[in-house]
Simulated scan of single mutants.
Amino acid sequence: MTKIEIGDGNIMEMSRISSEDELESCLGLLWDCLIAEGSQKMVGFDLQWRPKGDVKGFLTPELLHLLLCTDVTCFVVHSRFLSNANLKKFLAQKEITFVGIHIAKDLAKLEHDYGIVFRNVVDISKHAANVLRRPRLRAGSVSELAYEVINLKLNEKPIGAVYDPFFPFGSGKTMEYAAIDAYASFKIGKKLHGRPIQRVQLFILTTVIFIWFMLLVLLCFSLASF
């Protein structure tokens, strides 16, 4: 277990899963944390990749770790455990909202390569852009979103921090970066939970009703003039 100090003063515990039994235990701990939260069950997630050479000599991204994060803990699941049936069931829970940033391609790869399907997942980069009405946030980095939404300043990753080809299971430092990203996704998701979509929908509904009302008024005047 590694303790990571976050920029907001929080200290998160990062645990690396090393066996199926450990994975089952961690899933139980995650459930206990989520039950304690009540109806607002949310988990931040991130994926850690490394380059892999194909038969033609080209480098392609290979999934190394799936990270699942709450307010105080982050579990690092190696890709060799992603076929675990209980893990798949956990990730497919409707009552849990999984939040991440720029995740469309990641979700497609998880489904294609591992048969993992999320039934309740939110890309908070798009979510934040809608709430704050700042379209540029759709392309924003984790650091930008964290600063804009929750006023959390994350340390910039050094060049090459995304990939770590010299360590078969990833170095501690690169996992820390990924864990902080998953934590930031969780905190941003909590901040935005339930507010943006409802407000945007209400605004659209109010606008539509107003337009229909004005059209009806104009129609009545037109009919009265004949």
Results as ranks from 00 to 15, higher is better:
Cys220Arg: 07
Leu23His: 05
Ile11Phe: 06
Asp71Gln: 12
Val217His: 02
Pro51Glu: 06
Leu218Trp: 04
Glu22Asn: 15
Thr73Lys: 15
Leu30Gly: 01
Pro135Met: 09
Ile101Gly: 01
Ala139Gln: 12
Lys153Asp: 02
Ala224Met: 13
Asp106Pro: 00
Phe58Ala: 04
Pro196Lys: 00
Gly57Phe: 01
Tyr114Gln: 11
Ile197Gln: 09
Gly194Ala: 05
Gly172Gln: 10
Phe221Arg: 10
Lys56Ser: 02
Leu68Trp: 08
Gly38Gln: 10
Ala139Phe: 13
Gly194Tyr: 05
Phe186Met: 03
Gly194Asp: 04
Leu132Ile: 12
Phe81Cys: 01
Arg50Cys: 09
Ile188Thr: 07
Asn120Arg: 14
Leu223Asp: 07
Gln93Cys: 14
Ile204Trp: 03
His78Tyr: 12
Gln40His: 13
Phe210Lys: 14
Leu29Asn: 12
Met175Cys: 08
Val149Met: 10
Ala129Thr: 09
Val121Trp: 02
Pro168Asp: 15
Ala224Phe: 14
Met214Glu: 12
Gly189Gln: 08
Ile197Arg: 05
Leu110Tyr: 08
Asp54Gly: 05
Glu156Tyr: 00
Cys74Trp: 05
Lys126Ser: 07
Phe75Lys: 08
Lys52Val: 07
Asp123Tyr: 01
Lys105Gln: 06
Val217Trp: 05
Tyr163Ile: 01
Phe186Trp: 14
Ile17Leu: 09
Ser19Phe: 15
Ile17Tyr: 06
Gly140Glu: 14
Cys74Glu: 07
Val72Thr: 10
Phe45Ile: 12
Asn86Tyr: 07
Gly9Asn: 05
Ala108Gln: 08
Tyr114Gly: 15
Phe81Gln: 04
Gly194Gln: 01
Lys41Trp: 10
Asn120Glu: 14
Ala224Lys: 07
Lys105Met: 00
Ser125His: 09
Lys191His: 15
His65Gln: 11
Ala36Arg: 14
Glu37Ile: 00
Thr70Gly: 12
Leu82Asn: 04
Ser83Cys: 02
Glu5Lys: 14
Val99Ala: 09
Gly160Val: 08
His102Trp: 03
Leu202Asp: 10
Ser141Leu: 11
